[in-house]
């Protein structure tokens, strides 16, 4: 028999609104999405949506565009996560120092974080602009480049340039998380290392880096999850192009769903991406968590 005391009635009442909202706009869509992925849903043919089992998944795996998208997403994610992490460590080391103006730099760190991703995309697209962009202007003025070139139009560079824009926006949060972890390192460890004759670099390698492990862990998992599903910059900067140079999984989902209107395969793709994200974060925590 279920008896509810005052505490439990109050808790139920206080929690109910949130649970209701999340059920409608999060839990239900997640389950519904799975149902859609098992049916052949095409929006141009709304009345007939036969059950097809795992056909949508099989169709996706047989599609060569899927494997291109996997490759592009992998490159983009690896580059973005690696660059964000390295840069964040450097920035955290700088901002963890006490020096005049350090507070100002701390405030400045929030600038990229607060910038809307659409503006971020527009800003970098403008910097990379083939005819008037600042990157061309700068490199030509410095004599590095002879004439203006179409940066985003170069299939070999597109992903890296988009990654650069993403890193600019994502680095601050990563740096903040690392700074918090650094502040928690006991000072004695550095004194002891110094007594043992360790130089600046060795102290970083043997004291700072190991103590940074939980922070780095968090940054790696979080940045991977953000990057693997990133969408905004791809729509604004390249729309998957040139050719298929920036054809990532999230862009594939968007094209399949809202341009081809094949909701069934779109949902299957979404599920594959969600599962991959889950699996990756799990693996990170399971294996890297111990060794890092």
């Amino acid at each position: 028999m279920l008896r509810l005391g005052y505490d439990e009635r109050a808790a139920a009442l206080l929690v109910f609104p949130v649970v209701a909202v999340l059920l409608v706009v999060a839990a239900f869509p997640i389950l519904y999405s799975f149902w859609i992925s098992l049916h052949d849903v095409v929006l141009t043919r709304p009345l007939r949506r036969p059950f097809v089992g795992l056909d949508n998944y099989l169709r996706v795996f047989a599609d060569e565009r899927f494997w291109i998208a996997v490759a592009r997403t992998t490159v983009y994610t690896v580059v973005t996560v690696a660059a964000t992490t390295v840069l964040a460590v450097l920035v955290a080391l700088l901002l963890n120092e006490a020096f005049p103006g350090q507070r100002l730099l701390n405030a400045l760190l929030l600038l990229p974080w607060a910038t809307p991703s659409v503006v971020n995309g527009l800003m970098w697209k403008w910097i990379y602009d083939p005819s008037y962009g600042l990157l061309n202007g700068l490199l030509v003025q410095l004599g590095v480049l002879e004439r203006y070139r179409a940066w985003l139009g170069d299939p070999d560079l597109t992903l890296l340039l988009i990654a650069n824009a993403a890193v600019w926006k994502q680095m601050p949060l990563a740096a903040l998380l690392l700074i918090v972890t650094m502040k928690a390192i006991p000072e004695d460890l550095y004194r002891a290392a110094k007594v043992d004759g360790a130089g600046t670099f060795r102290r970083f390698l043997h004291v700072t880096l190991p103590a940074l492990r939980p922070g780095l862990m968090l940054v790696l998992v979080y940045e991977t999850m953000i990057s693997i599903r990133h969408f905004d910059l791809f729509l604004i900067m390249t729309q998957g192009g040139p050719g298929d140079a920036s054809f990532t999984l999230s862009w594939f989902i968007y094209v399949e769903t809202f341009r081809s209107l094949r909701f069934g395969t779109g949902a299957a793709l979404s599920y594959i991406l969600a599962m991959a994200t889950f699996l990756l974060s799990y693996l990170f925590i399971r294996f890297l968590g111990r060794r890092l």
């Binding site: 239900f28 859609i36 693997i228």
Partner: peptide, 28 residues
Amino acid sequence: IDFRGRRATLYTVLATRVIPDIALVVPL
């Protein structure tokens, strides 16, 4: 409040954010 299903509620709430936005877009 210490109520039955407290942890379950917390995990359910947090778990909804693990699904990528792009995957929620279609059903939503």
